[in-house]
């Protein structure tokens, strides 16, 4: 085979890219679940959330989340009438941020709110399973990663517990497990979704405010929902590629 230097220089990167795609398509051990067929995310429908805390309790039960740590939690926002009338002040003056409470992560619900005007709403939060996640980029040992199906996971046997990822997550979704001393976070109930079940939080949500979505599945109702609703992600300016999609998200949510 006769090749000059120019042809080799063109062919080598092309071969490298082709090999990458071969590796990405490697069939998994499980015959029924192919990682490459999925791209998981979650839809959170804010107007449906009633702040009951079922998701937080279900997550703790399903994943043995220690007390005081949360893989998912619910925040209650109160944007006062004044804040709604003066949005420019809310953006510039840090003293006028909306009131946000989350007693014990909202696990046992929220105190009754008196009608003081303004707007109340609940914001369930969790790992955003970012496609370009800051947390996986900072791991010095390759213990956390975006799996081929878009779920951000922690290899707890490999994790050193250095907590770089805890600092890197812009959403505050990671914590160091107090007993295992390794990073812990939402796995999007990976042990459930790979078996065809939905996540524990979605299973326990009484109003359907949380829905597991598979963005690679053309039959998933999320595609129709995205066409007809105003859906946003948290901190879009950070370009994390977050896959937890919020319907009707108020601009004050951080």
């Amino acid at each position: 085979m006769n090749m000059n230097r120019r042809q080799i220089l063109i062919l080598l990167p092309a071969a490298a890219i082709a090999w990458k795609s071969v590796l990405a398509g490697t069939p998994e051990d499980s015959p029924n679940y192919r990682m490459t067929d999925h791209w998981w995310g979650m839809l959170i429908d804010i107007p449906k959330c009633i702040g009951c805390g079922n998701c937080v309790r279900a997550c703790q039960t399903e994943n043995d989340v220690p007390n005081g740590n949360f893989r998912t939690w619910v925040e209650r926002y109160h944007v006062s009438d004044w804040e709604m009338k003066n949005p420019q002040d809310v953006m510039t003056n840090p003293l006028t941020i909306p009131e946000v409470i989350s007693p014990d992560g909202g696990k046992e619900g929220f105190p009754v709110a008196a009608d003081e005007g303004g707007r109340y709403f609940f914001v369930p939060k969790m790992c955003n399973h970012c496609a370009d996640s800051p947390c996986t980029q900072v791991c010095p040992v390759g213990a956390t990663f975006v799996a081929p199906d878009g779920v951000v996971l922690v290899d707890q046997k490999y994790c050193l517990g250095c907590a770089y990822c805890v600092q890197a997550c812009p959403y505050g979704c990671r914590y160091i497990h107090p007993e295992k001393r390794v990073a812990d976070k939402c796995t999007l109930c990976y042990h459930r979704i790979t078996k065809g079940l939905t996540t524990a939080c979605c299973e326990a949500c009484p109003t359907g405010a949380r829905q597991l979505v598979d963005l690679k599945n053309p039959k998933d109702p999320i595609h129709e929902f995205l066409k007809t609703h105003s859906v946003q992600v948290l901190k879009p300016q950070m370009a994390t590629g977050a896959k937890v999609l919020y319907n009707d998200l108020d601009g004050s949510v951080r």
Partner: peptide, 14 residues
């Protein structure tokens, strides 16, 4: 690690 996480026990039957 992916398989190990996928093998964790399920609590909610669905």
């Amino acid at each position: 690690a992916i398989g190990e996480i996928a093998a964790l026990p399920v609590r909610f039957a669905g």
